[in-house]
């Protein structure tokens, strides 16, 4: 039976090997290594801080944040969930994972929002960007773990870089979408009063797109959390490592405990970031008003608005 490979075989694997091994790694390794520096700084700072803060203090602060942004229910959930994580003995791992995820999301935001804004203002750039984002989202993350290890080595920071690649697309896409969806007449109105591009972006487009951008941030955060276990493959620690070692040793108990920790962390972060996307005006309530709501027999406020 004839097949096209009788005529021509394409040694794609060899090409990629020679490209990465013989050209990219020897020539650009120092460059890629230098990219690690900012990530390392942020991660070390955050990790050191989170692990130094007493468990009780951190729990109370996060519960307060949850209360002010997402309401009483989420705050109570946060208290219980964090206490549970501490009781199953995974507090340090959770803090490490949290610092990894927050670092990755921070860099995704810093990189992704400007790219999204650029894509919204240029159709050509959007056309070029779209297939790249598609590839980033669809390519199995195992594929780029190998070159990442070759270029960056193993450890926490390469894990975060893999996480950034995986989690970047939603915030870029939704920033682009949010800015493009700002009503045309509002953009015209801003223009008609003589706004510069920067004034329009800052005063009109960005605030009006904020809800959509926050939805993108939420998605990015969730994707970053889902990379925690995979990043453990290349030496990142935290809850991912607990799951990964559990898997390696067929230790169902530890794998489950790690998994539950990830899920609880995910729920807390998801609820808080989702409510950040609500219109700012609705959230601007005084502490006194919030207290009144908390202790009144009937919950007014939030439920009525939602």
């Amino acid at each position: 039976m004839f097949s096209p490979s009788d005529i021509l075989t394409i040694p794609l694997a060899d090409w990629v090997n020679s490209f990465v091994r013989d050209w990219l790694v020897p020539n650009f390794r120092p460059f890629f290594r230098s990219l690690q520096w900012p990530i390392t700084q942020v991660l070390n700072g955050l990790d050191g801080f989170l692990n130094a803060v007493p468990m009780i203090a951190f729990t109370l602060v996060l519960a307060l944040i949850a209360w002010r942004t997402a309401g009483r229910g989420v705050a109570i959930f946060t208290l219980i969930a964090l206490a549970f994580i501490d009781m199953i003995g995974l507090w340090p791992e959770t803090m490490t994972t949290l610092s990894m995820v927050v670092t990755a999301v921070l860099f995704c935001t810093v990189i992704g929002i400007p790219i999204g804004i650029a894509a919204a203002s240029s159709n050509r750039f959007q056309t070029v960007l779209r297939p790249i984002l598609d590839i980033m989202q669809t390519i199995p993350s195992f594929v780029y773990l190998v070159p990442i290890v070759m270029l960056f080595g193993v450890g926490m920071v390469p894990g975060i870089i893999a996480t950034i690649i995986f989690a970047l697309p939603p915030i870029v896409r939704l920033t682009n979408l949010g800015i493009r969806n700002v009503r045309g007449d509002l953009v015209e109105a801003a223009q008609s009063f003589g706004s510069t591009r920067w004034q329009m972006l800052w005063d009109v487009q960005f605030p009006l797109a904020l809800r959509t951008i926050m939805a993108g941030l939420n998605q990015t955060l969730m994707l970053a959390l889902s990379m925690v276990v995979i990043a453990a493959l290349i030496g990142a620690g935290g809850l991912g490592l607990t799951v990964f070692t559990g898997l390696g040793r067929l230790d169902v108990g530890n794998a489950t405990a790690g998994g539950v920790g990830i899920v609880l962390l995910a729920i807390i972060l998801d609820r808080i970031t989702q409510s950040l996307g609500e219109p700012a005006r609705m959230r601007k309530t005084s502490l006194r008003a919030t207290l009144a709501t908390l202790f009144s027999p009937k919950r007014s406020g939030r439920d009525g608005e939602a």
Partner: peptide, 9 residues
């Protein structure tokens, strides 16, 4: 503007 085009925020 026809549909006012007031900035909602």
């Amino acid at each position: 503007f026809q549909h006012f085009a007031l900035f909602p925020h």
